[in-house]
Each structure stands twice: as structure tokens, then as C-alpha cells.
Nucleic acid binder design. Structure first.
Lengths: 339, 339
DNA sequence: TTGTAAGCGTTATCAC
DNA sequence: GTGATAACGCTTACAA
């Protein structure tokens, strides 16, 4: 059961008593050949457990059927779900996924992109941590490899972009808090280097403005998408005088941090502080208290981005598309609504 | 900024006025060459934005520096975390990750393995959905590509295995329930085709046995790792007469389903039913009620598996290793403990 | 120190 | 229908 080399096309050809080119044609169903030789080749391939080398094939055909997927953190539920969505449609279109984690850092992202390009992937799916435009352009936009951004994009570049409707989401959250009668509303912000984080912050300020409420600096805190950052930022915000009566979170991790901070501080939700967050999670309903959220389908984001990318790979001329994934408000107890 | 072909090593060589082999040596730092030509080549590479084709390199060197990663479901937090752990150590060792999702099906897993083998990955990291031994052996064990299993393995094969200490985990859970005075203890089981699921079930039966309690068939239900299955199975179990007073769950998804079912049925936790589960989750403490769990580091599982794999790739002779990742009990309210 | 040539395993373009 | 033959872009003896 030990093994020598893997069988090559030449081995198969020899076994079947034909030339390599004939064997290739037989296996790929191209060209006309007799049923007889075709069968012989198939048989030989089976007998030798032949598995054609994608490496050699790719080198020759100049196409890898592989797509690079770059995210700040694979273990985040959002990215994992987006990956899953992308996976499925890519697989159906005959593409494989080469995954890279940028580790939430620009340098990591650049390294990932380099590696992927060196592998000659046919396309790129990236959620950027906030690369500056120049760096991105010289790195990939100068090449033939199409890149579709999702969730967080580099402005004015790429073959397509799929973003969540951040503005609509924050609007829903803010207006709902105002309907509950709150006027002192605070925000837990995520990373402002990513468009998703910045857009949510901007939408928050704009929404309040629209209702004649000017933003107080002390009511905005946070700069990373982590639970710990949510905890810290919440404590900071609650320290302001007067403290806010409502808190909107830019992500579920931040909201979890807020929950922890409030529990520790003895701040009751929603009685002392109303809370609602961007991102629904499958466990949101089971939290204490159940979280009011802005929901969307993260797998959809990946799926759409993958579709855009496949479209561009197949037809490079198709102009850059921008897609927005819709969101909806899910009312639960944390904002003050009754079940 | 459209683009022609990517620059090739030959282009770089020409630009620098040297031969391709010299260019290759200069870039890879092999052999002795004058600082002068080395600099010239580097300069040329930079000027042309040369990115060496891993494809060609791999074809020539017969090594891809790529590892295949196969899991039943990427979007599951456990696998996502394991992936993250593996990623990190693989990256440090110079390997890239080609990710495939088997979609919880044996056929999907076989397809994934085939694809990965065709890509000539240097190694495989797989959490099997329960492939039968023969199928696995003819597919990959007959080849030179080493395979390390994690979380769920195919028995007696592979270059290594990293499993959670399922038995210890279930023991902790069962004994804790017994300490609380429960005698009618039920189990939410996961997929029995995976070793993780089967091991937990077996450990459950054995643990009760050890304490002189024989297992009742009606107290065991479940066959998939989903929240929905947890919900259904819980309802079935609670329908038995007399119903159990304690419920142990094989995974956090199942436990979430149980929480939902109990809420719907008006069964209070822990008063009417004590609950505890395998798998800690970052939100376990924030649930209502906070969940008592068996915790471990999922990233560790991936990390160790990756280390084993890299070791085997570097030294194919190193015998098959079996590693077990430790677990610990985290007491919270759902089992009846007070905070 | 550098160049020449062969070869990795395919597929594509020709002939026959 | 089928078989040579030449790439694809790189590395590595072996020469020079």
C-alpha cells in the first residue's frame, strides 16, 4: 500500500496503448475518437487511480479555477457565514477557494493578496481591513485578476462591491430608540478603518441630526470589532454625565461586551439602558435579555459577491457592479419592547 | 491601467540582462552570485512587478506548500475556530490553506478529497463526517499525501489524529448532574456517524453505568449537530414518562435547541430540568440562564493538528501520533449551581 | 559567477 | 481518429 509516484497522464496513455494527447482527449471528452479507445483510456485511468494534476493543467491553460478569499478573521461568525455562502456558489461554478486571513492588519492583507496572486487565482473576494487605495491599486488593480469586495471595500476600485445596507440598518435602530422616547442615544463603534464601521458611524450621526439631535462626543466610543472593546467602550460611555438612556451597537460582539459591562456595573437592560445592535445572531433570542437587532443574511453577502466575481471572470467587460444587501429590524426585549 | 500578461522570470532575466537561471538564483538566494547581478535582478523584478508563479514552481519542485482543510461545515463556530488555529501555524510554516466544505455528507467529503488530491496538496487536515475506512484508504491512504484527522477520525488510518477528550467531558457533565442529586439523566446526541458524536454517546452510557444507572432508550435522542435537532430531540425526551430531571447536551447547538424547546414548553431551567452541555461558547455566560458547559480551546485542536501535519510532511517517517485536547467544566446556572 | 538544457504533467496545434 | 511536438514558467544539474 506504500506508493511510488502518482500516476501521470503518460502512464495512463502507455497502459492504454495510446499517445498522451489521445489520453488527454479521451479523459476531457474533446475531439472525436473511437468509443473503443475512449473506453480503454478510461479503464487505464481507473486502474492506475489517475488523478490529473491541476498544477500542470493550470500552467498550460493559464487558469486555475481557484478564487482567493481574504477576510480579517475567519473565526468571526459573519465571515464564516459569508465564506460558506461564497463557497457554495463558487463550487457550483467549478471554483475552489483558497482562504487567507489578514489577521485584521493591512500588512497581513497585503501579504495575503501577494500569495494569492502568486498562485494565479482566477479572482479575489476580499473584505478589506482598510487598505489605502494606492496600495491596493498597484498591488492588484494593475493586474488582470478581478477583485470583488464585500462588507468592506476600497473606494472606487475593484470589479464589484457587495455591502450591507449600513445606513438603513442604523436608521432603523436610531428611529426605534427615538420612538421609545429616548433622546440621549449613544453608539458603540467598530473599526473606522473599514467602510462598514465608518458607514455605521456616519449613519448614526446623520440619523440623529435629521431629528434635530446633535451628537455628543462622549456618546460615541469603540474602535475594534471585539467583545472586549464593547465592554470598555460601554464603560466609558456610561461614565459620561448625564449618561445616555439608549445604546446602539455597531456589531453583535460589541453588544455582548455591553451586556457584560452592564451586568458588572449593575445597569439593568432595558430599564436603565435600552440596547439594540447591528447583526442578528442565532443566539440573540436566547440572551438575557433577548437582543433587539438589525438582521440580514451573511451567507447572502458571500453568495452575491461570488456571483459577481464569477460573472466578471466569465465576462471581464461587465462593468463594476455595486450590490446592497437589505436589512430588517428584529424587535426583542433589550430595547424596551415587550415580548 | 489595463494589463498585458503578468511578468515572467524570463522577462525579469531579459530586463536585467542575465539568464533565467541566474534570475531564479538571485531571487531565491541560492548559489553564489555577485552582489551586482543580484541587485540588478531584484531591481528588474521590482520594476516589472514580478510575482513568481507558484504553479510553475510547484510543478517543478513537486511540492505545493498548500494544505487541504476539509470540514463538514465551515460556518460552524467550532470549525471556524479550528481553521483559524490551523491557519496560523500553517502560515508560519509556509503553507497555504485550500478549504473545502463537505456539506455534512460523505459524497461531498469524497469530492473534496479528490479535488484536493488533484491539486497536489502537500497534506490534508480533515474532520470526517464518517467516511468508511475502505473508501478513505483507497482514496487517500494509498497515496503519499499525509492526512491528519481532527475532531472526528477514520479509525486506524491517517498520519495523526487530534481529538477532544470526549469521554472526560461527558464524565464531568454526568458526574456533576449526579452530584446535584439527579438520577434520571437524558442525553441530546449528535451525529453518530462521526466519532465525536459516537464517543460522547458511549461515554454517557458508560458513565451512568459506572454509577449503577442503566440507560433508558427514551432518554437518548438526536442525530444531527443542529439547533433544530436539539429542539426536536428535547421535546421527544421530555415526552417520556417519567421525564428526566437533567439533560446533557452533546453540543452547544443542541443545547440552544433545548433552551428554545423548554421556553416554548414552559419548562424552567434549571428548576424543572437541569441542563449542561459539551462546548463552551463566548456567549454562554450571557444566555438565559447562563449555560454550564464543558470548555476547551477549539483553535487548539486546529493548531495541534496542523503541527502534526507539518511534522509529518517534513519527516514522513514519524509514526502516527494521537493527541487529545483537554476539557474542563465551567459551572454556571443552567445545571442548578448558583452564580 | 553565470549560462545551457532538461524536465515537471498537462493541453493545443499541427500533421498524418 | 490519432500521434508528434511544442509550449506553459519555473528549478536544477551540469558545463563553461
Amino acid at each position: 500500500m506504500g506508493t511510488g509516484r502518482e500516476a501521470t497522464l503518460a502512464d495512463v496513455a502507455e497502459y492504454a496503448g495510446v499517445s498522451a494527447s489521445t489520453a488527454s482527449r479521451a479523459l476531457n471528452g474533446r475531439g472525436e475518437l473511437s468509443e473503443q479507445t475512449r473506453a480503454a483510456v478510461r479503464e487505464a485511468a481507473a486502474a492506475l487511480q489517475f488523478e490529473p494534476s491541476q498544477l500542470a493543467r493550470s500552467l498550460r491553460t493559464r487558469t486555475t479555477s481557484t478564487v482567493g478569499f481574504v477576510v480579517p478573521d475567519v473565526s468571526s461568525p459573519f465571515y464564516a457565514a459569508a465564506l460558506k455562502g461564497a463557497q457554495r456558489t463558487l463550487e457550483q461554478s467549478g471554483f475552489r477557494v483558497l482562504l487567507m486571513d489578514s489577521g485584521q492588519a493591512a500588512d497581513g492583507e497585503v501579504a495575503a493578496l501577494r500569495t494569492l496572486l502568486a498562485h494565479r487565482v482566477d479572482g479575489l473576494l476580499v473584505s478589506t481591513v482598510g487598505l489605502d487605495r494606492d496600495r491596493f491599486v498597484t498591488l492588484v488593480a494593475g493586474r488582470a485578476t478581478p477583485c470583488v469586495f464585500f462588507d468592506s471595500a476600497v473606494a472606487d476600485t475593484g470589479a464589484g462591491t457587495v455591502l450591507l445596507d449600513n445606513e438603513a440598518g442604523i436608521d432603523l435602530l436610531v428611529e426605534h430608540m427615538l420612538e421609545h422616547g429616548h433622546r440621549r442615544v449613544a453608539l458603540l463603534a467598530g473599526s473606522l478603518r473599514e467602510t462598514s464601521g465608518r458607514d455605521r458611524l456616519d449613519a448614526f450621526v446623520a440619523a440623529l441630526q435629521r431629528h434635530g439631535i446633535s451628537t455628543r462626543q462622549e456618546y460615541i466610543a469603540g474602535d475594534r470589532w471585539t467583545q472586549q472593546n464593547g465592554d470598555l467602550a460601554t464603560r466609558r460611555i456610561l461614565g459620561s454625565n448625564p449618561p445616555p438612556t439608549a445604546l446602539i451597537s455597531s456589531s453583535v460582539e460589541l453588544a455582548l461586551g455591553a451586556l457584560l459591562a452592564c451586568r458588572d456595573l449593575g445597569v439593568r437592560i432595558p430599564d436603565d439602558l435600552a440596547l439594540a445592535t447591528f447583526d442578528d445572531a442565532y443566539f440573540a433570542e436566547l440572551l438575557d435579555p433577548p437582543l433587539t437587532t438589525v438582521a440580514y443574511d451573511p451567507a447572502d453577502v458571500g453568495r452575491l459577491a461570488a456571483q459577481l466575481l464569477v460573472g466578471t471572470i466569465r465576462d471581464p467587460e461587465s462593468g463594476p457592479h455595486k450590490l446592497t444587501v437589505g436589512v430588517e429590524l428584529v424587535l426583542r426585549r433589550s430595547c424596551g419592547c415587550s415580548p
